[in-house]
């Protein structure tokens, strides 16, 4: 899928399948809103993906095994 057709994916079908995997019942009445938000998220994900990252670009949150207290 290219970035230009990110919002053309089957958002409702994806939502149904992913929700089943999460044991999340989806009311059919909520599905259009969920799909619209997934399409918007897909646009944002395409923007994020447009930037090439190097292997050394680690995720921002850094786990700390223990904290010193002052």
């Amino acid at each position: 899928m290219t970035s230009s057709d990110r919002t053309a994916f089957d958002a409702e079908g994806y939502a149904r399948q992913a929700a089943a995997l999460l044991d999340l019942p989806l009311d059919p009445a909520h599905l259009p809103g969920v799909a619209a938000n997934l399409r918007l998220a897909a646009q944002m994900a395409a923007l994020v993906a447009s930037r090439t990252l190097a292997p050394e670009d680690e995720p921002a949150p850094v786990f700390v095994a223990g904290r010193d207290t002052p």
């Binding site: 994806y14 939502a15 992913a18 929700a19 999460l22 999340l24 989806l26 909520h30 809103g33 969920v34 799909a35 938000n37 997934l38 998220a41 994900a45 994020v48 993906a49 930037r51 990252l53 670009d57 680690e58 995720p59 921002a60 949150p61």
Partner: peptide
């Protein structure tokens, strides 16, 4: 609801970016 369904890769990529 939509946020709970996002692919993990999108989240990890966002945190790396």
């Amino acid at each position: 609801l939509a946020g709970a369904l996002l692919p993990a890769s999108w989240l990890v990529q966002a945190q790396r970016l």
